[in-house]
Amino acid sequence: MSEMIIGSVPLLMAFTAAVIGRKKQSTYWLLLFPWFLLYTFVNQWIGFFMWPLFHVENQLLFNVFMLIEKGFYFYVFYSILRKHVFKKIAVGAGTAFLLCYIYDVVIINKLFTYGYYAANAGNLALVICGLLFFTEILISEDYVDIFSLPMFWIATGIIVFAVGVLFYLCFFSYIINDVDKDGKIWRILATILSVIEYSFFTVGFTLKHKWVHSK
């Protein structure tokens, strides 16, 4: 419970910052951010109470959440990337995730068991998209004040979370069955990474810098 509360505070802060900063968000996909964060918040709490209150497994809920979360992030990266070739790579990475998702979650696990392989594939693909965004910043011919770029904070938050859970998810079945049976390590890890991710989001949304159109 305490981990949930700790993890929810920065999430709510990011949500508040995204709502307040809506006027600055001139692109369509950025207007979706508050809704996405609200959905994340509601999803986390419903998932948390599903078993204790209704004795229902929450794995389907998180499988759906995985698809929406990763899909939304891919869409954000696709919209912010400017180079055509980078956009193509982002689409490739997104498609690879989708194929993994269909195979792992739909075909193998029949939707009711959490698809950690798909989650890992999604995280890897998001790391690739984040690196593409960083590369674009790096090779830009114009003067770029990185700290004033909201997308820098958002991309860094996404990458940190994705990299942080990468190793755990790689050995998920082994860890969850032998080492971390009660899932305590996972909860701590996810909480720490969520705090970092959503804090970065909050910084991004509170920046005075006007959002740049993706195109």
Partner: peptide
């Protein structure tokens, strides 16, 4: 448990290093 923590920590340090390099 320590191995998981250590590897995750190393990965995060590498990410931080990459961001600093950027």
């Amino acid at each position: 448990i320590y191995a998981i923590c250590l590897v995750t920590f190393v990965l995060l340090v590498l990410t931080t290093f990459m961001v600093f390099m950027l």
